[in-house]
Simulated scan of single mutants.
Amino acid sequence: MRIIGLAGWSGAGKTTLLVKLIPALAARGVSVSTLKHAHHRFDVDKPGKDSFEHRAAGARQVLVASENRWALMTELRGGPAPPLSALIAQLAPVDLVIVEGFKRDPHPKIEVHRAANDKPWLHPEMPGIVATASDVPPPHALPRAALDDVEAVAALALRFAVEPARIWPESG
C-alpha cells in the first residue's frame, strides 16, 4: 500500500479532481481508497436511526453492516483526533490511498492550485509537496500537471506515492 495526498485551499478543486482521479487509476488496475479530513463537525449517521441512537446513548463504537457495505463509527467523546498514521492503519490494504486534506502532515502531496481562488501557493512553506496540479504555471520547478489533465495527475500520484512506513517508521 502506498499513500499520496492532495492539498490546497478550499475551492481549488481537490474533491472534483479526486472524483475524476479514482476511475482513472482504477482503469490502470490500481485499487484506491481515500481518506478525507473534515475541518468541521460532521456525521455520517441520521437521527432516528438505531445506530445513531446507540451512539447517542454513549456507545464508543457502532458497526453497521449489510450485504452491500459496512461502516464503523467511533466516537472520540472530546478526545483528540487520531493522527493520520493511525487512520491509515485502519484501512484495508489497497494499492493506493489518496488523502484529501491533512496538508500539514509529512506525507507526499500534490498541491492543487486554481488561480481564480486568488490564494497563495502552498509550496514551499507546506511540508511534503512534491508536485502540483494547477491551471497556471507555478512559480517553482516542481513537476506539474494541468488541473484538467487527469491522466497526468494520475501519473504524478503513482510516481510520488510512498509506503506509509517510509513516512512513519513506527507504523511498519
Rank of each mutant, 00 (worst) to 15 (best):
T34L: 04
G13M: 04
L96K: 05
D50G: 08
S10Q: 13
D118F: 08
R28E: 15
D118H: 09
V99L: 04
P169R: 02
A146M: 11
A131D: 10
A57Y: 07
D135Y: 10
R55A: 13
L18Y: 01
V136G: 09
L18D: 01
T74L: 09
I88K: 04
R41H: 12
V130T: 14
E67G: 11
P82Q: 10
I167D: 01
W70S: 11
L147T: 03
G79W: 13
G78Y: 10
L122R: 01
E111T: 05
P108R: 02
E111A: 04
D95C: 06
P138I: 11
W9G: 02
S66C: 10
G13R: 04
I167P: 01
L96A: 05
S31T: 15
L91S: 01
P127V: 15
E170Y: 04
P127H: 14
A59Q: 06
H39C: 00
P138L: 11
G172T: 03
L72I: 13
K103Q: 00
K119S: 14
V150K: 05
P106Y: 08
P106W: 10
L96P: 00
F42K: 04
V19C: 08
H54D: 10
A154T: 14
G13S: 08
P124E: 12
E100V: 06
P47I: 09
I22K: 06
S51M: 08
D43T: 14
M126I: 10
A81Q: 14
L6F: 03
A157G: 02
V99G: 01
